[in-house]
Design a protein around this nucleic acid. Structure first.
Lengths: 135, 135
DNA sequence: CTTGACCCTAAAGTATGCTCCAGGGTTTAT
DNA sequence: ATAAACCCTGGAGCATACTTTAGGGTCAAG
């Protein structure tokens, strides 16, 4: 399979595929005589793996590491894999908490504003931002 | 006040201050004969404003725009400012939803894993990522 | 009058994840 | 045989928010 076909089957662009190869996310495939990349069918699976991992919050580098583990999975333990998941879960949790705190603070400030079409000369939002003592 | 003092009072680095100036976040100050930046005391307030806005999720560019409005606030309306806040609140909301979805998916996958210290040859997490049909 | 602390500029580097470009071969169908 | 569609490389560009580097003036204290 050449790169265009792999792009079609994986839903990624050829540029992204070449980028992934450069970043070591997917292994460099064999080349045809004319230098074209020749992929094995299972590469589609690897790419689906990467896309799934990305979809749950893993960075490309992390995806690369996970795929490494996947490739040699009998040399790794469930405990190790689960640990990586749990670390990521905590990161996601922390990010949610941060967003929530920002949201709450902004909501409170925003609610204090009358929202009128008169001048913002004494707008509660602007005043709050200026006085600032964000938690 | 020179840039080092402003850095101290604002809690930012001198590099960040120069960067903010270049990006138009804070206005370019007057210069001494020798070319040193000479800031007015209120610049500290402006920077606090920016930091507050950043703390509730506004990007630097958005902070710049908000500060613009703040500087000419009698030419703007509360409705306008509140609208910006509400747009940001929705963005934060959307980001939280995304994170939550990722967390739920990963949690489900992670919970399916035994977490044992045996080989990950048939690890549920790896299998789920490979089979992938992320919602 | 010299030393250390402070200031200046332009430009490049960092991290992330691609995307696009120029310039140039290859393959496939007609 | 030629045109469309496809492939190649190296490198630049984008967005965000800084940080660092290199090379070089200025100011205040002792």
């Amino acid at each position: 399979m050449r790169i265009g076909e792999l792009a079609k089957q994986s839903g990624l662009t050829v540029d992204t595929l070449r980028y992934y190869e450069k970043e070591g996310v997917i292994p460099a495939p064999a080349r045809s005589e004319s230098g074209y990349r020749e992929y094995l069918p299972e590469t589609v699976d690897f790419l689906r793996f990467v896309q799934s991992a990305k979809a749950v919050g893993f960075s490309l580098k992390e995806c690369r590491n996970l795929l490494e583990i996947f490739h040699h999975r009998s040399a790794h333990t469930c405990a190790e894999v689960k640990s990586l998941s749990e670390i990521k879960l905590e990161e996601l949790d922390q990010q949610m908490k941060n967003l929530k705190a920002m949201h709450q603070t902004l909501k409170a400030i925003s609610d204090a504003c009358c929202g009128s079409t008169e001048s913002a000369a004494s707008c509660a939002i602007l005043n709050h931002l200026e006085e600032a003592s964000m938690p």
